[in-house]
């Protein structure tokens, strides 16, 4: 398997992202995730540059690496030209590959993202579109969303989009040859392998927890569990 640190070093984002952190705290001070979560990008940089395998493994299994919103604010400010957001990307990928992500509540949500956004895009060409965002699953959309979802075609027409029609414009149906191309891109870039890895480890976890899991889609207990679980410790 090789050392975790060496594996991180094979990721171009990691090589780009870490050029000797001096622990100044600028990234943490600007980081929106650090404001809300128990999260400190400076500490993450310092942990990985310590090359301490135990600490890196703990990080890969932790909630911490899933708090970053990848907003890249840290990139704009770091006086050493580091990009903690890139380091997090590399850590996440390694955590996915090793299956460590299933050890944390936030990490397990990788499964929900894969099943929702990941399958949406391959099926419809959209990560997210109004048909996919159900009011029950997304209370954060507010009460208006229920009304919108019941009147989508009319509203979309009023907004000037080409909802579910062929041709050009927003909300159009994505042509089959474009979808085929998208699928191919996911194939050759390794995304599909990544999806399979997430599936494999998630199924393993679901079995371990004795929770029902399906082969695809979001209609299964494991999906709902990882989507809604909140142990309440993330901001403390």
């Amino acid at each position: 398997m090789g050392k975790l640190y060496d594996r991180l070093n094979q990721d171009i984002r990691f090589i780009e992202g870490l050029n000797g952190c001096m622990n100044c705290g600028v990234c943490t001070a600007i980081c929106p995730a650090a404001e809300f979560y128990h999260y400190d990008p400076r500490v993450i940089c310092d942990t990985v540059q310590s090359k301490d395998e135990k600490l890196i493994e703990a990080l890969l299994r932790s909630e911490t690496i899933w708090y970053c919103g990848e907003c890249m604010s840290c990139k704009t400010r770091c006086p050493r030209n580091n990009t903690p957001g890139f380091i997090i990307m590399a850590l996440r990928k390694l955590s996915q590959e090793l299956g460590y992500f299933t050890d944390s509540e936030k990490g397990r949500q990788q499964f929900a993202i894969k099943r929702a956004i990941g399958e949406n895009i391959l099926r419809s060409g959209y990560c997210v579109n109004p048909d996919i965002v159900s009011p029950q699953m997304h209370p954060e959309q507010g009460p208006v969303w229920d009304w919108i979802s019941r009147n989508t075609p009319e509203i979309m027409e009023k907004m000037g989009s080409n909802y579910k029609q062929e041709g050009v414009g927003g909300m159009r149906t994505i042509a089959p040859e474009v979808l085929a191309e998208l699928n191919q891109i996911f194939e050759v870039t390794g995304c599909k392998t990544m999806f399979e890895t997430i599936e494999k480890h998630s199924k393993h976890k679901a079995d371990e927890l004795g929770i029902e899991i399906s082969d695809e889609g979001i209609g299964n207990e494991y999906f709902m569990t990882v989507f809604t679980d909140n142990n309440g410790t993330h901001n403390s």
């Binding site: 622990n23 705290g25 001070a29 404001e35």
Partner: peptide, 28 residues
């Protein structure tokens, strides 16, 4: 111990400063 990431002006002309107290590990 923390480098300042940015300063913003409040409506009354005072200044809000963002930094991390790196010794206690807290953004402030």
């Amino acid at each position: 111990r923390g480098r300042v990431s940015e300063i913003a002006e409040n409506i009354d002309g005072t200044l809000q400063l963002k930094a991390e107290d790196t010794l206690s590990g807290r953004p402030m």
